[in-house]
Simulated scan of single mutants.
Amino acid sequence: MIILGLTGSIGMGKSTTADMFEAEGVPVHSADASVHRLYAGRAAPLIEAAFPGTVSGGVVDRQALASRVLGDPQALKRLEAVVHPLVHEEEAAFLEAARRSGAPLAVLDIPLLYETGAEMRCDKVAVVSAPAAIQRERVLGRAGMSEEKFAAILGKQVPDAEKRARADFVIDTSQGLDPARRQVGAIIRELTGGRD
């Protein structure tokens, strides 16, 4: 089974592209969705122990947690030490289930793939990309987003040009959904030898 890492900077269309792989019958594991599940489950008591007052009704209060870790590299490291091993466990279970099902290809949707060295766990990497002007328009159109927040997020991400240079595949999402879908289909065919 081939493991394809899927990544892309904020506003590039990664989640929509992950959905396209799923629509083609490819199993997809979303690191973000995994964190959401863990914040409402196994990770909640561990996070409450590390950051008292950040869990309410058994679910991590993301705003309260963000106010404790943002801008504090040591706190962020402590949080990652709690969450990352749990996400890796879920990812390993997902890959095992995909292998058992006979899937020729599985996708790991990881926002900070290059930033965390996760490409080492993948056979190939696809980067979702669009021109900076389109990215900016998409991101600043989101509720609660500001120029400052956008700049801070970009500052933590490997630049798009570097991601594209390091990737095995680049999916251009600037032309709309159908062209992106065709690119996804071509990648699936190439990686599975046409067995899709």
Rank of each mutant, 00 (worst) to 15 (best):
I2M: 15
L4F: 13
T7L: 00
I10G: 03
G13I: 02
K14R: 15
S15E: 04
F21M: 05
E24H: 09
G25R: 12
V28Q: 00
H29I: 02
H29N: 11
S30P: 05
A31W: 12
S34T: 01
V35K: 00
H36E: 09
R37I: 10
L38Y: 08
Y39H: 13
P45V: 04
P45W: 11
E48I: 04
F51T: 06
G53K: 06
S56L: 11
G58W: 10
V59A: 14
V59W: 07
V59Q: 10
D61M: 11
Q63D: 14
V69E: 10
Q74T: 13
A75I: 03
L76C: 04
L79G: 02
E80K: 07
E80D: 13
P85W: 13
L86G: 06
V87H: 06
E89L: 09
E91Y: 13
L95E: 12
E96K: 15
E96C: 13
E96Q: 11
G102I: 00
G102S: 00
P104Q: 08
P104L: 05
Y114C: 06
T116H: 09
A126Y: 12
S129Y: 14
Q135N: 07
R136C: 04
E137W: 07
V139Q: 01
G141A: 14
A143R: 05
A143N: 02
G144L: 15
G144N: 13
E147W: 12
E147G: 01
K149Q: 02
A151D: 13
A151C: 08
I153M: 08
I153R: 06
G155E: 05
Q157N: 07
V158Q: 07
V158K: 03
P159M: 01
D160S: 06
A161P: 09
A161I: 10
D168T: 00
F169P: 02
F169A: 05
V170F: 14
V170R: 10
I171H: 15
D172T: 10
V184L: 11
G185P: 14
G185M: 15
G185S: 15
I187W: 12
R189K: 10
G194Y: 04
G194W: 02
D196C: 15
D196Y: 10
